[in-house]
Each structure stands twice: as C-alpha cells, then as structure tokens.
Amino acid sequence: MTTQSSEQASGFSLGSLIRRPETGSLIGFIVVYVFFAILGGAVFLGAPGWSSWLNIAAEVGIIALPVGLLMISGEFDMSVGSVVPASSMMAAVLSGHYELPALVGILGGLGVGLLVGFVNGLIVTRTTIPSLIATIGMMFAVMGLTLGLAVLVKGSTSVSYVPDATSKQLLGTFIGGMFNVSIFWWVGFVAIYFFVLHLSPLGSWIFAIGGDRESARNAGIPTNKLTITLFMASGFGAAFVGIAQVMTYQAAQVAGGQSFIFNSIMCVVIGGVLLTGGAGSVIGILLGTMTFAVVNQGIFFASLDPNVGSIIIGALLLAAVLSNDTFRALAMNYATKKK
C-alpha cells in the first residue's frame, strides 16, 4: 500500500498533496496500519492478516462506494441495511427453496436492490422528503416485508442454499483458501466508480448536484435521473453483498445487515467525504474503508479488547471531522492566494 501511495504522490508537489481530500485518510490509514502492525506482529503483516481485513473491507467497501457517491451528491441511504438480508433471502428462496437456476436467484436478489433503490430515488426526487427519512422508512418497510414474506413462503427465518460450483466460484469462494473473491469484485467496483466520478462527465454532475442542486438543474443536468440512478447503485451494491454472503455462507438469514448502515457511512466519512456535499473522492473512500477494516480486524491480531476498536473508530471519525475543516481552510486559502 505504501508503494502505491508514493507512486500517487510522485506527480504532485507536497503542498497540493496536503490539500487533496484523500490525504487525511491516507495518513489515518498509515497510522492505524503501523499501530496494529506493531501490536499484531508477523501474522498481521503476512498474507493471512491482509486477507483478513481485505475480506471485511471488500464487503463494506462495495456498499460504501455508492453510499459515498450519494453523500457527495448530498443524499443518504439508510435502507442498505435491510437490502443486504432482503437480497440474500430472495436469492436463497428462489434458488434454494424453489430450486430455480442460480442465475435466477442472483438476478432476483439484485432486482430487489435495484427496486428498493428506484423507490428511494422516486420518493426523494418526487417529494420534498429528505433522503434520510425516506430511506429510514424504506428500511423498516423492507425489513418487515423480508421477515413477513420469508415466514409466509418458507415458514422460517433462515433458508439454506447450496450454490452450484460456478456461482460459488464467482461469488463465494476463497482464493488461496483465504482471499474472498469479493475482494476482486470490490477492486472492479472501485475502478468503475473511479471512472464514473473522476473521469466521466457524470462525476462532475454528481459534484455539481452536491454543491448546489438548483443551479445544477438550471445548468441542464438531469438531477432527478442522476439521483435515482445513484440510489439504484447503492441498492445494487447492498444486494450484491447480500448475494455474495449467501454464496459464501450457504444460508440466508432475515436478521442482520443493520451493521452495514453506519459502517458504510463511517468508511465514507473516514475517507474524507462529508455530507456537506460536493467534495470527496473514490480513492478517499477506498482508504477510509481499508482503515475501518484494519481497525476492526487488527484488534483480534493485537489481542486488544474489541471495544477498544469502537473507541478507535469513533476517534478516527472525529479526527476526520476535525481535519476536514483544516484541510478545507488550507484549500480555500490557497485558492484565494492564487486569485
């Protein structure tokens, strides 16, 4: 990771590096990694350690990326917490209970995510209900539907499903016995989101919406379509994780997934994206997710009380919050000086 970051840094002067939004998250990641490397020792530094936190990072990360984009555009999505179990339940019921082909289950699960996202997007764009409230409403509704329908269809709250070899290989296997295949999906998603946010015109539209929705609309940006798409992306990400979990653990549960709501937001915030909208980067989100995962897994290698992990994550969040203003002030100063 350190080599990668120095490569990144080589193109910039030190001054502009400090002002980049992801610098804070990079520093955070290095500090946390070094801290746990010292305490965790050789096992943490080796492949077992890396795979351990990367597996965690991959799942949160797949959700954190679209959630981050939403936050950059100034919206929240709390419903991801109920989409994860809803999609794994859908996949397990279709392919496990009704014994339909795996593809049907996968598409069904992803469909759940896209549909929830679409409804979220519709509510947020068609009404003046803030996204936080709209998605909390959807979260409760989807949670209730998942439980009610699972009990109606299966008569129980857990459905087991043994996937065929191909789908297990693609979505739920461990490469080398330890690296979850979802890490590679995550990397793929990072590349796609990086392209979308930083290279394609869509990216500047998202930043523009986050900066000022009204003027973005006036500038001819299809803000409603874009917002709905972003919500569908976060629904898709959550559904993807749900399916990866059902493929990996071969069983779907109605409960669970709630931890993803705040965990994904925390990753994004540690990564330097704030709900002030209009600022942030995919690399920042990536680093934030990695930091979060290192803390969560590092405590087991360092034999610390897991509760210390919560305290560290809380402190990191607050540090991200505090440094945000500092970095912003620096950037502002620089910009005014230039003028």
Partner: peptide, 19 residues
C-alpha cells in the same frame, strides 16, 4: 468477544474467528 459493530454480519464473524 466481537465488537458491537459486527453483530449480524457473517463476514465480520468469520474474519474475527480466523484472526
């Protein structure tokens, strides 16, 4: 013992056990 943030998350449990 796992932190409260991993409750209900299969991957978090699996990784904690492994670590």
């Amino acid at each position: 013992q796992l932190p409260a943030t991993s409750f209900g998350d299969a991957t978090a449990v699996a990784q904690a056990v492994r670590a």
